[in-house]
Amino acid sequence: MVFASIACSILGVIISRMNLSSIGFTMSHAAFAGAAIGMFLEINPQMTAIFFSVAVAALIGPVSDKAKMAADATLGVLFAMSMAVAIFLVSYMQYSGRGLSAGSLLFGNVISLYREDIYALAAVSALTIIFVLTFYKEITSIMFNMKIAEASGVRVKLIYYILLFIVAISVSLTLNIVGGLLIFVLLVTPASIASQFCFNVRSMFIAAPLVALSISAFGVWAGFEYTLPIAPLVALLLTSVFGVSVLVSFKRRINYKKY
């Protein structure tokens, strides 16, 4: 959960600024569909989740470019396709008596992780941090304005495609823990909370993972202590904190003195 929080919340800062928040549910449902394909074919669902997510991620940029559509619209199309594939397979397996429950894919299972899963998540967190540190100036430039970045000679497409790839990998590995539906919360909500208080992007990159980490840790503790489902609990906690932060944010306050 720690590694998932770090990776998703850092990526969330980038995608929410780029108005690509829907990449969260598209990729999470692509991972969901990939995992369903794995279960249907009786092969490792995590591998198929990664494969299918990367394939979908690889389509977003070129399809948007070719169709001259906003990436958000392409994400909507791919989301619907992924969801349809997943529901089709899950329903088919249920009808045919293979008894697949979508519950573990939708809501995740924090307590039944293998050591390899944890190593993979640590690697994804490290990859995300290295990506942001290495391409910090290009990423911030794109976050500011894609057209202006391109006009300045920044390699916008290269960075954009790497970003999609890393989101795909992170989401598909995180699927096991928080589940397809709730990854979206980790991608979007910590960044949204940070945006209520941070005036510059550097502090957002620090605040978002700290928020995600502390709330996730608290959620895991409370889940064990009071025998509650951890992933939905963390999602509800993050959403509550977001609600409170909107109410108390000082960024929208008018700070002038009457002389």
Partner: peptide, 21 residues
Amino acid sequence: FTPFTVEEVVMMGRYGKMGLL
């Protein structure tokens, strides 16, 4: 809510020229 200062935006003008990395 654009989280970039004037100083940062002006510096960004040089990012393409600097090259990757």
